[in-house]
């Protein structure tokens, strides 16, 4: 029995090691290192902080939305389970603040009307070319998936690259920490600096936290006191960056809470089932020397 149990452990350890070995090496690319932040939604029990999502949405609405679209998010999503906690009436009122194009009507004409909860956030520009032309040739990316489409390398550092990669693979998997997207967004939004001596970034803005290079087209979007919070939270660049990163994680992964809840229930069920099967198996095999 001892050897069998040992083999089970070996098999599982091998499975885990294989899974994370190469996969983690991919996530660990980039060369720049990022700091892990505290997110209420990280880990197996993580949940969004509704107040934080509402503040983050306010930052998106008042700052980011002037250039960045949110094309996969509908107004109704804001009030769904595991979202921002708005009521149906609040969402109706919120949607009505936006104008969307609809049609053609009975005469064949397109028209605009106030948005309804089922509409998606309208883009600030009619098309990509208009967006580029308004932003010096750079296209402001859509933000609905940005928190999953970017990843900063983070986690324990051993000083030896292959060892660090290996440790981080295991660390990400075991701690269930995959919030490297919002970590990156926070680092980027708070990472603007004066370019060092001898570095000329031209029309771009110097930001050593930017993943592809050290300069990007987006000017520093946040500043202290820029957005008026009504819940007494600090009105600092750091707080804005943190709140809007959390909001963008929700926008990218609106089913996160449901996913973690269902996953946890499944794990509890499977653990009990596995325990019962273990004893059943032991009983079945008790009459055989093996």
């Amino acid at each position: 029995m001892i050897t069998l149990t040992k083999n089970t452990v070996c098999a599982l350890v091998a499975a885990c090691a294989l899974a994370v070995s190469a996969g983690g090496a991919m996530a660990a690319g980039g060369g720049k290192h990022y700091d892990k932040q505290d997110w209420s939604f990280s880990g197996p029990l993580g949940k969004y902080d509704k107040a934080q999502l509402q503040r983050g949405f306010q930052v998106y609405k008042e700052v980011c939305a002037s250039c960045h679209s949110l094309e996969y998010v509908a107004f109704r999503n804001l009030g769904e389970e595991g979202a921002l906690g708005y009521s149906a009436d609040q969402i109706k009122a919120l949607a009505a603040e936006y104008e969307v194009e609809d049609g053609p009507d009975d005469e064949g004409e397109m028209f605009t009307r106030p948005a309804k909860p089922f509409d998606r956030f309208p883009s600030p520009y009619p098309n990509d070319n208009a967006a580029k032309s308004a932003n010096g040739g750079a296209l402001p990316p859509d933000l609905s998936l940005i928190a999953k489409a970017r990843a900063g390398s983070m986690g324990p550092d051993t000083g030896i690259e292959p060892l660090t990669d290996l440790v981080r693979m295991v660390w990400h998997t075991v701690t269930a920490y995959q919030e490297y997207g919002p970590d990156y967004l926070y680092a980027l939004l708070t990472g603007y600096e004066e370019p060092p001596e001898g570095v000329d970034v031209g029309d771009l803005n110097y930001n050593p936290k930017f993943l592809s290079g050290d300069a990007l087209a987006m000017a520093p979007p946040l500043d202290d006191e820029l957005v008026e919070y009504s819940d007494g939270s600090p009105m600092t660049t750091e707080q804005y960056a943190k709140d809007v990163s959390a909001f963008l994680m929700w926008a990218a992964e609106p089913k996160l809470e449901e996913r973690k809840r269902v996953g946890l229930n499944a794990l509890i069920f499977l653990a009990i089932f596995a325990g019962l099967l273990y004893f059943t198996k032991k009983r079945v095999w008790s009459d055989v020397d093996h």
């Binding site: 089970t8 599982l12 899974a19 995959q178």
Partner: peptide, 23 residues
């Protein structure tokens, strides 16, 4: 053994579903 494997599978698919994919 399949149920033990499913525990690992569920952990990956529900807790770190994007870890094995590319951003």
């Amino acid at each position: 053994a399949i149920v033990l494997f499913m525990i690992f599978f569920v952990w990956m698919a529900f807790m770190v579903p994007n870890f094995l994919g590319h951003p």
